[in-house]
Amino acid sequence: MYPAPFRYHRPEDLPAAIKLLSRFGDDAKVLAGGQSLIPMMKLRMGDIAEVIDIGRLSGLSNIEVRESTLCIGALATHAKIAASELAAGIPALVEAAAGIADKQVRSMGTIGGGLSVADASGDWPTCLRGLNASVVIVGAAGSRKVPISDFVVDAYATCLKSDEIVTEIQVPLPDANTSSAYVAFKRAAAAFPTCSVGVQLTLENNICQQVSLVLGCAGPTAVVSAEAEAQLQGKEINSETLRAAAQTIVAASDPPPDARGSAVFKRAMLETLVVEAGERALARCRGEAVNGGHRYA
């Protein structure tokens, strides 16, 4: 296994990187941490003649709070997010970051890279969808900000134009009544999840004011269901109401049968994970400390 030959570019700054992307168009690929791109290149997926290494660009890996929003530089590694005190205020974010593959991959892999790959089994597209994140994109025509729901358009496909790069992920900071959870079922640390669920919940006097439910690995892109969310809104959240909403959203999903499990198995697992993630988010809304972590086979 060996990548096909390519030309390597290491631009000095973001404008230089954009210029290279404008010049090479679809022949070019952006290298951040390389934890998705390098395996793909080793499998010789796609024709990649030019590799633009943005891994060393400065100022793109900060994690900071601006205007009630957690702003995460696209080059922040999963390890950095998992250890970030600022990110700790959004438990789903930390659970996703800390559970990606293993320590080796988390030390190199970046949130911007992981999101831009838009793998249907990837953790970031699912987790960030549940947190109503936005994606800041810079290209030759300037910068724009798109909601995560518009960023991922299909499996392995985003709204990025060939001269554009993700520079920042923005996640709204939750208020005191809001919390979240992200749980995946995995066969092994280094494996992609078999299925995953993100939940964000706003609770007032034990009544659900707002909820987002998202399923990962359950279709070409993250699965959401307005019907399932409506089932919970204005209701008390407990294992029964969560189970009913889980059944609704799972019915709207289409998990592909593959080496990780049959569709029947994945549906059952997704339903269980919705309840588990919902209960974790619920406990956190009530101020209880809940241990994070994925489920492993």
Binding site: L31, I38, S107
Partner: peptide, 19 residues
């Protein structure tokens, strides 16, 4: 193939030498 690169634990089969 695990090594450390600038103190970070990495899988050296998933890292280009130019990195």
């Amino acid at each position: 193939c695990t090594v450390t690169l600038n103190g970070r634990l990495v899988k050296s089969c998933t890292c280009l030498a130019v990195q």
